[in-house]
């Protein structure tokens, strides 16, 4: 019995070492660092208590980043999930050309986000980008979606949705394939319409996948910001600065590591609460096999 335990821990050890080195220890260190000041020149770091947190609460850029992030999440999470489900429903059948469509839908996932961002920069380019060329066909004036404060956040959100929907589609596709055909046939025989079958059979049966995807989508809404580096660098006037990008700026452009640690703690807490809430709330309404 005891040998088995030693054996089990030995098997877990490599993963534990890696996780501890790159995840757990830095998380704890970040938490500690948020109560200390940033070391500068001749002044070493010293304990400041909650000072960093007070500063954060008074920091308008932090609140703007939080606000931007909320809008970014509200747009990207439901849109990418909904689009993923629609695409999965489209390509799950045995119609001609579904193989090509599956590939087309999945392609954005394979591309690096930086490359995706460059493609979209071309779409958005004022004057001769794809969007303005189409606007031109209808006699509409040139636009600058990325450079305008009121539209920039939506413009970078669209990139995230485009990038992620194909990835989530794969999970929905896998879930849809596990629903036995006889369940759908039994419902058809009873006279259920396609919408009734979708709402009362398909949707409840893929809820475990929906939960899994929604947790991932929410995490990605905070984490997936590569395109902001490439497309807007948080501008114009912080319109696209979401929390993670702001942390990067504070930590690696302003080198204020203690304040960056404080912001990171807030981000970790928000993510943990969201994930826990989703699991606890949705778990009770989900049928697992």
């Amino acid at each position: 019995m005891k040998r088995e335990w030693i054996y089990a821990y030995l098997m877990l050890l490599p993963a534990l070492v890696v996780l501890a080195t790159f995840m757990h220890v830095p998380t704890v260190e970040t938490f500690i660092a948020s109560f200390w000041s940033t070391a500068r020149g001749m002044r070493p770091s010293h304990f400041v208590g909650l000072k960093n947190y007070h500063r954060m609460i008074a920091d308008p850029t932090f609140w703007q980043a939080m606000h931007n992030n909320l809008i970014y999440a509200i747009i990207t999470v439901p849109l990418s999930m909904g689009l993923a489900l629609v695409m999965a429903l489209l390509v799950q059948g045995r119609l001609k050309g579904t193989g090509f469509m599956r590939m087309a839908f999945f392609t954005p996932t394979v591309l690096p986000l930086i490359a995706v961002a460059n493609i979209w920069i071309f779409f958005y380019t004022p004057g001769f980008g794809l969007i303005d060329q189409i606007r031109g066909l209808f006699g509409l004036p040139a636009s600058n979606l990325l450079g305008t404060g009121s539209t920039a956040l939506y413009a970078v959100s669209a990139v995230a949705v485009w990038k992620q929907a194909g990835f989530f589609m794969i999970f929905y596709l896998a879930a849809l394939q596990t629903i036995p055909v006889s369940l759908i046939e039994a419902a058809q025989l009873e006279g259920a319409s396609r919408w009734q079958i979708f709402r009362r059979i398909t949707l409840p049966l893929i809820m475990p996948t929906t939960l899994f995807i929604s947790v991932n989508a929410v995490i990605d809404a905070v984490r997936l910001v590569d395109q902001i580096f490439q497309m807007t660098q948080g501008g114009p006037n912080n319109a696209t600065a979401i929390l993670f990008y702001y942390i990067y700026q504070v930590g690696f452009q302003f080198w204020d590591t203690a304040y960056a640690a404080t912001l990171t703690v807030v981000m970790i807490v928000i993510l943990s609460v969201l994930a826990l809430g989703q699991v606890l709330f949705l778990d009770r309404r989900i049928h697992y096999k």
């Binding site: 006889s182 369940l183 046939e185 419902a187 009362r200 049928h287």
Partner: peptide, 11 residues
């Protein structure tokens, strides 16, 4: 119709 695997809705 009664299906081979019953086709009961599991949820």
């Amino acid at each position: 119709m009664v299906f081979q695997n019953y086709a009961l809705f599991p949820h």
